[in-house]
Every structure is written in C-alpha cells, then in structure tokens.
Design a protein around this nucleic acid. Structure first.
Length: 658
RNA sequence: GCUUCCGUGGCUCAGUUGGUAGAGCGAUUGAUUCGUAAUCAAUAGAUCACGGGUUCGAGUCCCGUCGGGAGCUCCA
C-alpha cells in the first residue's frame, strides 16, 4: 500500500511489519505518533480509532490511542526498571488505564522509597532510549521463551490463547514482554510520568489466586499536562466528600457505632430532607406514584420466596439463631418483596396498571469490612425506590417514563452531563447466579436496549452486572478520583411475579402475570449527597443549601433589625440564621464564606433606616443594597426554580481566599 | 475478607537515637460595638484509638483488637 508522508512524498510498503517500520519513519512528523496501522490492507486515517480489525494504528500523540500507547510503553519501562532493581520479580500484566498505567508484579510490597528509586531507574532507561521492536512467535515457541525467562504468569496467559495464534512480543533492549501493543517507537518518548502509588492486587482479580503488588503511574506527552493532571488530583482531594463533608459538618462517623454507619448532623440532615421531599412530591404529583410504608425486617420465609435467601444471604443482616430453633428474621436489603404484598392486598384489573408503588426506605446490606467508604458505600442507607407493576404491553412506555424522570432529576441537580449509561446484562457463563433461561434474558435485554436506542441515549453494555432476576439500565457516576458507582438503576423483571403469585385480571377475566420494573430516580440519599459535595465542592445550588442566608449585623446595635430580617426570611421558608457574635463584619463575612453560605445580608445603620439589606453572594460578590422585599422575591424565585447560579470565576474566589 | 499505609485535644498537624506531651485553628469567658475575607486577652480541653508485651522508663519498639486511607475481591 502507499502512504503519503507529511512532506508530500509517497512511499510504498508490503506488509504489516513494514508498515510498522514506516510508522517509525514518519513518527517524527506526527509529533511522537505511536504505532502503525493496517485496516483491511489499507492504512487507516492518521487519527483513526483502533478498531478490532485493525492490528496496528497510527495516531497523533495526544489522541486517546496515542496516550494509551505512551502509557503502555511507560508500563514496560516500569517493568524493566523493576527487573533491574528487583531481579527475582515475576511479571504479571501491565496495561494502560484512563489516567495512566499500572503493572502487577509478584514481589514483596513496594514502599514509597522503592517507587522513588524505580522512578529514577525509569528515567535512566528512558534517557538511554531503546527502540521498541515487535516480533511474533508461534504459541509453542512463545511459551518456551517465557519459560526460559522464568515468567510463569506470562506462560499462563499465552497458554490461554488459541493454539494457532501468532503471539506478539515487544522488545526494548534486553527487556522482552508479551504484549499485543501498540507502543511508542522508542522508550525516549516517555517524557512526563510519575509513579503514584502501589497496592495489592490478585492475579486475574481472583482472591483465591496469587497476591501481586500493583504499581500505579500516570504519564502524559508534556510535562505541563502531567502538572495539570497532578493539580487536578490535588483539587480532587480537596473536594473529596469524605473530607469536605465532615469539614462542613454534614456528617460524621463514630468508632463505637460502626463502619459504614454514618451519622448525619443537622446540616446534612436538612439537605437530605430537601432532596427527599422534592423527590416524593415529584413522583406523587407528576408521575402517578403511590406511597407505601413497609417493615424494615421480615422472617426468612419472605426472602426464600424472593430468592434472596439463596442468592444474597451473605449480604444480609440475619437476626435470631436458626440453630437454636428460634425465629429467624433479616433486616431488609431491598424493598421489592414488601411492596409485592402491598400490590397483592387487593385484586388488580388491567385498568389499574401500571401500579407505581414508591417508598423512601432504609435498607441494610452487610458489606465486607474493606468495602465501606464515606457516604458512597455504607451498610445502612435510605433510598426512594419504586416497583411498578405493569402489563407487558406497557413495558416500553413505562421504561421510557423512568428514563425521562431520571433525566429530569439529574438535570435539576446539574448532574446530567456527569453520568454514563450502562446496559447491565447477565453472564451466560454463570447461569446459576441468575433466575430464568437464555430466552428470558435475551428478550428482556433486547427490550432495554431498544428503549435506550429509541431514547437516543449512548450506552455501554456490560456482562455480569445484572440483578439475579433481570437486566438493568444503570446510570453511572464517577467520584472525584474517577471511581465509578451506580447512581440510578432501572430494572426490568419478568420473572419474580411468578414466585409471589402476582397477577392482574385482563379484559377476558383471565389471570395474567404482570411485569415489574424496579427503579430509582435518584441514588440513595447518602451517595447522592456525596456526589453533590464533590460536584459542587460544597457550593451547592441555593435551594439545597442547609443554610441559605446568613444575616450579619454590623454591631450589637442592629441586632433588633437583624432579627426582623431573619423573621421575614423564615416566614418565606428560607433557611436563614443570624450571626450576633461580637465580631467585626469582616470576620463574619469570612466565616460565612468558608461555610459556603450563598447569601449574606449585611445590616447596619443605613439598612435599618431605609428597610434595606446589603447583599453579598457567592455568585456575584458584593451586590450592594436592595430592599428586603426585593431580595425575598429574588431568592424565593431562585429556590422555587431550583436555579443553579454560576459561581464567581475561580480566580476571583482564589484572590479573595488569600 | 485480602494487601499496604496510618491512628497524638473538636479539627489540621509537631514530637529527635525510648526519658514522662506542643502549636495553629476551633471552643469557652472577658474586653471591644466595629461597614464587606481573621480585634485583643485569658481559660478550658489529651488515661497519645484500645488491650497486652519488652524496658528502670513506651506517644516512640513488638504482638493483638478496633477504626481510617489507598487498592483488590464483591456489589441484588
């Protein structure tokens, strides 16, 4: 094939390997372009994504593929450095990830000093520079090579590849690694990197297999990009809800109460109440839900019917001693079976469906002790969740309603662009974990996929992420560190109605099994609060703030007027306080700003005489004097519409914070 | 549950090779009554997470438990 080089000249190449060579030739002209490309015998567009049918791709250095190649190469350099400094080490795997790379080694734990030494060694390797050369071997020879080099993990990986596969390797100097590529042309290309941390990881992610040590690093094309990334990580640390939420006195934890059991202080409680009232009103008044109130525990019999006893027992808190012959109860890990019995309380006609039952319920899940984290992973949480019982012909429309409601909630919170949608499917290789057969799963998964497509939602599909009774549409959010959690879930369940003998009566008077949608339209309140803290760095939209206005009298003389203003605010359902401490106004303002209160009303002689308030906001700084009535109308409107006012430019804030 | 690092007043942290706990912020009290990001002073507050061990002596060294961070596994 022919390639037109950047200078306009044309060169011809015969096969993949020579394309690889030419990519090296032209890489200088493509900044530090990575890899090479061959798609159906044609060289791909230079910025083209790496497709499955494309074994090699040419791309620019800053494209996602270029960065992946860079980071992948950095992981090889790391592996070489580890080999140099810790000769006995065995190599496992070392891929590139979102913000960098990691490599797993079979070795003693690495200390920070080890990482620093490894960084220095990597710099040496990079400075020396070595061309990365790709070569392939038939499987048997590949195994032999890795056996000779005493790399049992690599041997295991190769043995799982097809027998007739040509196994590809990359060599840099004396270092050889099994690798599909792609890579940079030369280790010299790794210019801006940092080893960030080390931790334990299991071989193949299996806790029964060998314990390996994983070293994480990050790498960019330019030092500036790396600096920006590290600064962003620093910012993430400042926003971390587990730190900021405690600092702002939204929640706390107490050793003797236990792990994963946060206590909400008055401010955090107020925020959750605001979210909950909004959520319940929205569902009931605009989306046709009815509310239920069901027990927090039940006899084990209930969970045996639902399947949880078989599929989820180790995740439940069990009360009572089965062995002693006593009654065995369990705290509920979900609301589903309770609401089914609410449905069954009266016979339903096809006209009654969809029957939408919602409940703000507290759930208990016995998470492993290492799993708990701040407010995002807890053992007791509260969620407004619903079960919609419906006719099969209503499934599509109702699923769309659920998606619409979820989108409305997300966009009101200003979070609609922060999420990704995931179609969570079963794992056909693990059938015993699920209810129902292949046909059931295929049809329900197709139904959800169709709804997502019709709603024009872009989504990824994930095997093995389904509930045991049905597939899910999961709306995923990332925390400040990039770790993903499920916020909202919409599940289609056509199986469980059978277990509970639920039915409705159709036009012909026949009993028919309904479908059930399990859904939330906001994550549990704990997790949602955590997400809001991190998204807004504690500077919440006014309607959500636990303290919306703080009245700041200039001195004791204006306390009476301050109280009058406070009363007027409270009368309009605004969460307001007054700061009557004998401090200077500058101090009170500083204090209120650090508490991230959106509005401060400074009142003194001038304001008292003319019935004014001097407004200072998080959004516009000093807004000057306004009449109290005008301010009240303005903030009430802002709260009513749940407006998200833009904050002051970061530079200004920073300036002010100095 | 696993690996690793960590645990010192309410918070953030000092505390040398083991010698008997310190700062800033916050709190309280008093003075001050002030116009847009820190008024001054005084006071209180710590069996150094808990339990055991080594030692003449442990915040410091060792073991265990509990709790926290990071990661892994799990996640209806």
């Amino acid at each position: 094939m022919k390639i037109t080089l950047k200078d306009g000249s044309v060169r011809e190449y015969e096969n993949a390997l020579s394309v690889y060579d030419v990519a090296m030739d032209i890489s200088e002209g493509l900044a530090r372009a990575a890899c090479c490309a061959l798609v159906d015998g044609q060289v791909a567009d230079l910025r083209r994504v790496l497709h499955q049918d494309c074994t090699l791709a040419i791309c620019t250095a800053d494209s996602p593929e270029g960065l992946a190649a860079l980071r992948h190469t950095a992981s090889h350099v790391l592996a070489e450095a580890v080999k140099n400094l810790f000769p006995g080490v065995k190599l496992a795997i070392g891929p590139s990830i979102d913000t960098g790379f990691y490599y797993d080694f079979d070795h003693e734990p690495f200390s920070r000093e080890d990482l620093d030494a490894l960084e220095a060694e990597m710099k040496k390797i990079i400075k020396k520079g070595a061309r990365l050369e790709r070569f392939t071997l038939p499987r048997a020879e590949a195994v032999k090579l890795m056996e000779e080099r005493q790399e049992p993990y690599k041997v295991e990986l190769i043995q799982e590849l097809p027998e007739d596969a040509e196994i590809s390797f990359y060599r840099q100097g004396d270092f050889v690694d099994l690798c599909a590529g792609p890579h940079l042309m030369n280790t010299k290309g790794v210019k801006a990197f940092k080893l960030t941390s080390s931790s334990m990881a299991y071989w193949r992610g299996d806790s029964d297999k060998a314990r390996l040590q994983r070293i994480y690093g990050t790498a960019y094309n330019k030092k500036e990009d790396l600096a920006v990334h590290l600064e962003r990580m620093e910012d993430a640390r400042r926003r971390d809800h587990n730190r900021l939420g405690r600092e702002m006195e939204l929640f706390t934890t107490v050793d003797v109460i236990g792990q994963g059991l946060p206590l909400f202080t008055p401010k955090g409680t107020k925020m959750i109440m605001k979210l909950q009232r909004w959520m319940e009103d929205l569902e009931d008044k605009e989306w046709g839900y009815v509310r239920t109130r069901t027990p927090l525990m039940a006899k084990s019999d209930l969970y045996k019917i639902s399947g949880h006893w078989d599929h989820y027992k180790e995740g439940m808190f069990i009360l009572g001693d089965e062995a002693a012959g006593g009654e065995v109860m369990a705290l509920r890990p979900m609301t589903c079976p309770f609401q089914y019995y609410v449905y069954k309380n009266s016979q339903k006609s096809y006209r009654d469906l969809p029957y939408r039952m919602s409940e703000t319920s507290t759930l208990f899940r016995n998470e492993d002790s290492g799993e708990m984290h701040g407010l995002t992973r807890v053992r007791q949480f509260t969620i407004t969740e619903a079960h919609i019982v419906l006719r099969p012909d209503q499934a599509e429309e109702e699923l769309k309603n659920c998606l619409d409601l979820a989108y409305y909630v997300l966009s009101t919170l200003g979070l609609q662009d922060e999420v990704t949608y995931r179609l969570s499917k079963w794992d056909p290789a693990n059938k015993e974990k699920y209810l129902g057969d292949e046909a059931y799963w295929n049809s329900t998964q197709d139904a959800l996929r169709e709804v997502l497509r019709e709603k024009n939602v872009s989504f990824v599909e994930a095997e093995g992420e389904a509930a045991f009774y049905g597939p899910k549409i999961d709306i995923q959010a990332k925390n400040v560190y990039g770790k993903e959690d499920t916020m909202i879930t919409i599940q289609l369940d056509c199986a469980i109605a059978e277990n509970f003998d639920m039915y409705y009566v159709d036009q012909n008077g026949e009993k028919v099994r309904p479908y059930i949608i399990h859904r939330t339209s906001m994550g549990c309140y704990e997790r949602t609060l955590a997400w809001l803290i991190e998204k807004y760095a504690g500077k919440f939209p006014t309607w959500l703030c636990p303290e919306q206005v703080r009245v700041l009298p200039i001195s004791e003389k204006y306390e009476a007027y301050g109280d009058k203003v406070l009363k007027a605010l409270l009368a309009r359902d605004i969460d307001a306080t007054v700061d009557n401490r004998s401090e200077k106004i500058g101090f009170k303002i500083r204090d209120a700003r650090l508490a991230r209160v959106p509005y401060m009303l400074v009142v003194g002689q001038q304001e008292e005489e003319q019935g004014l308030v001097s407004v200072r906001s998080r959004f516009a700084g000093d807004e000057g004097p306004k009449s109290l009535a005008e301010f009240l109308d303005q903030i009430c409107e802002e709260i009513r519409t749940k407006a998200i006012r833009p904050e002051m430019a970061p530079e200004e804030t920073k300036q002010a914070e100095k």
